[in-house]
């Protein structure tokens, strides 16, 4: 038996134990198990593990649900444990939904006071700079590549002192390349880079913004690069790329939704 067929067989055995197979494939496995006692023993062991897991935890699903977990009760609560502000988020989403106008409409309606505005300018400025510097890199566009995504998220979360999540944009045609740590004017920043099949690159820039809470999306453009940027809780974000504004807005919306999930 070649190494490859043995690997396939093991996956098939797991699928059999977990009830993932159609009847026809199930019968094939059962036939195989009749002639391979070692595999049969393994399958038996895994089935007993599954039974033990069920015995340990299934009864919890039969318990009466505590009052504090009833959705009707939770929905009535005005504030949450994390104190996130729903109205600001709803406003951000609403403005996004308004389409292209969202970016500049946000300014008069939800614009922060002047000092924060200055910080905002530096955020998007730094995001533009980082985008220009690293997207042209051929050999080292990122410091840690996408196949170490978990490590990348952990590392940057530690440096930014808040859980950093890395959105996936595969559904929009952009694959994660990886990310890097960057110096920003007020501490460490993170940059994640994505690329589509035509080699177009976009970057998501994240930096800690103490004292910030929530803003709507804002739009900026510089030397052919479009950017949407916003603040959400302790982190500020800027998504930049040389893609048209509507595409970038769609991507920004996806990023925002995933970060909020």
């Amino acid at each position: 038996m070649s190494k490859e067929t043995r690997t396939i067989a093991e996956e098939q055995l797991h699928a059999y134990v977990d009830g993932q197979l159609a009847a026809e494939d199930r019968q094939k496995i059962e036939e195989h198990l009749r002639h391979h006692p070692a595999d049969a023993a393994r399958v038996n062991e895994w089935q007993r593990q599954n039974e033990a897991i069920q015995a340990l935890f299934a009864p919890i699903g039969e318990e009466t649900v505590p009052e504090r977990l009833r959705p009707a009760v939770l929905a009535r609560k005005k504030t949450s444990r994390h104190g996130r502000r729903w109205p600001a988020m709803a406003a951000a989403l609403l403005l996004l939904a308004l389409g292209g106008a969202g970016g500049w409409l946000a300014r008069p309606l939800f614009g922060p006071p002047a000092p924060a505005g200055i910080q905002q300018a530096s955020l998007v400025e730094e995001a533009f700079n980082a985008h220009r510097i690293y997207t042209v890199e051929v050999l080292h566009p990122v410091e840690v590549t996408a196949n170490e995504k978990a490590h990348l998220a952990k590392w940057l979360s530690k440096r930014l002192r808040d859980p950093v999540r890395i959105p996936t944009l595969d559904g929009e045609g952009f694959a994660l390349m990886g990310g890097r740590l960057l110096p920003a004017s007020n501490g460490p920043a993170a940059q994640f880079m994505y690329e589509d099949k035509n080699g177009r690159r976009i970057t998501l820039y994240t930096v800690r913004r103490d004292g910030g809470n929530q803003t709507a999306f804002r739009y900026a453009r510089e030397n052919g690069i479009n950017a949407f940027y916003w603040i959400d809780g302790p982190l500020a974000y800027a998504l930049a790329g040389e893609v048209n504004r509507a595409t970038l807005q769609r991507l920004a919306r996806s990023v925002y939704a995933q970060l909020e999930e």
């Binding site: 977990l69 939770l74 929905a75 609560k77 949450s80 444990r81 994390h82 989403l93 939704a257 999930e261």
Partner: peptide, 13 residues
């Protein structure tokens, strides 16, 4: 509870 609160808050998403 955190999960449910978040889901209720983010139901639009």
């Amino acid at each position: 509870q955190d999960c449910l609160e978040r889901a209720i808050r983010k139901r639009r998403l």
